[in-house]
Design a protein around this nucleic acid. Sequence first.
RNA 1: GUGGGCGUAGCUCAGCUGGUUAGAGCGCCUGACUGUGGCUCAGGAGGUCGGGGGUUCAAGUCCCCUCGCUCACCCCA
Length: 428
Amino acid sequence: MATSAFQRLPGFRDFPPEELALRSHIQEAWRRVSRRYGFQEYDGPPLEPLELYVEKSGAEIVGQLYNFTDKGEREVALRPEMTPSLARILGDRSRGMSKPIRWFSTPQLFRYERQQRGRLREHFQWNVDIVGEEDVAADAEVLAVAIDGLRELGLGPDDFRARVSDRRLLREVLLAVGVEEERLPTAFGIIDKLERMPRDKARATLLKDAKLGSAETDGLLELLDSAGLDAVRARFGDRGAVAAELARLAQYLGALEAMGLGAFVQFDLRIVRGLAYYTGIVFELFDRKGALRAICGGGRYDRLLELVGGEPLPAVGFGMGDVVLGELLAERGLLPAYERALDYFVVAVSPEQRAQALRIAHTLRDRGSSVAYALKAELGVTKQLKAADREGAKEVLIVGPDELARGCVVAKNMESGGEREIALSELT
RNA sequence: GUGGGCGUAGCUCAGCUGGUUAGAGCGCCUGACUGUGGCUCAGGAGGUCGGGGGUUCAAGUCCCCUCGCUCACCCCA
C-alpha cells in the first residue's frame, strides 16, 4: 500500500467525511436521547493526572493507561474513562448544586493496548450519570437511557439485551453460600470471568481461591447459571439481607417494566463489572447473538466522589463506546449511506454572469441555505452540472444571459430534471 | 506482552511450481457534449508490488529483519 511519509499511530482512526458522518449519526442519537431525559452535557480535559486513575479504577485499567511524563515532570494519562473526571469536576462544585445532578458527555477516551476487533486505542464513549440520588429509580432511569440510545439507532429487543445484577445481592448470596468476608473480592473476580472460563477451571478456582467447599461450589455455579431472580429467592429468600436486596432489584426491574422496556432486561447474577468502584446495581448491554463485546456497561458507584475528595454523593451511570456499537449497526444494516447534500448549486452560463451568480449564491447563504458553485469561472455548463450532481445539489440555479435579460434565472430540480423560472428579485 | 493470518493502483482484488515493458473492475481526469447532470462510448493519469537486507542469471513470487493491518490470548474503557 502506498504510504505517505507519516503513518497514523496504531489504534487511531482518521475520520474523512464518510466516516465522520457515521460517527456523528451515533453521537447525535446519543445527544437527542440524553436531552430527552433532561440530561445536561459537560466535558473535561482529555489529559489528566495519572493518580486520578491509579487507586480509583482498579488495576485492570491502570495497566492499559496511555500515560507518560510531560515536560513539567508530571505523570499524566490520556483519560481511559470519564467517571473519575466527572467525580473530580463535581467534587469541586457539587455542594452548591441542586440534586440529583443529571449530566452526560461524549468524550474521546484512550488506552494503550494492542488493538483487536472492537477495541482500538481510542474511542468515543457516551457517558450518562445521575449523581446525588440513592433511590433505585435513578438506576432504572440510567439503564432506560442506555436502552433508548440503542433504540434511537434502530436496534430492538431482537438485537440486544441488558443483563443486570447487583453487587450487594451477589455479596449476600456469596456470604449465604459460605464465602468468607475477606474472600469476597476474589469470588467477585472469578464470577466476573466465569463466562470466559471453562467449567472445570471455574470450579477449581472457586474451590481453591474462594475457599469454598465442593458442594457449595456446585450449588453456587448452578445458581449463577439459572440466571433468574426466582432461583435466588427460592434458595435464599428467607434470609433477611438477601430478601432486602431482592426487593430492591424487583423494584428496579418493575420500573423498567413499567416503562415498557421489560423485553430488553434480564437478571443475571454473573454480571459483576471489572471496575473496582461499583457498589450496587451493575449492568451490561450485549448483542443478542453474543458475537460482539459488551456494547455498554455501567452501574452504581456510591463512594467514588468521596474517594476523589468531594462531597459523599451516591451516583449511577454508564459508558457506551462507539466502536462495538458501530460494528453492530453495520451488521444490522442500520448505518445510513453517506450522501452529500446541498440546497443549491449556482451555474453561471458564461463568465459574464459570474458576478450575478455570486450575488445570488451569497443572498441564499445569508438566508440559511447551503449553496455552492464552480470555483473555476470558465467551466462550461455541462461541467458545472456534473459538479452540482457530485455535490448533491437539490436544485441548480442557471444564470444565463437570456434569462437575465428577462429578469429571472432557471431553477432545475436535479432529481426530477424539471425546470422552472425564478424572478431575480426573489434572489437578491 | 504472546501466538496465527495478511500487506500488489484511491478502493476491492487477480498475478500458476521465481522468467519479457505488473493486470481487471470500480473511482478519478479528458473528450464525444463551448446553455443542461445521471446513462453510454473512446482515451488518459495513477504502482519504489509496505520498508530494508539476502539468495539467484532473474524476486510481486523464496529467506531474514522491520513497520503496519487483522484475529485470538492476556485483559476489558
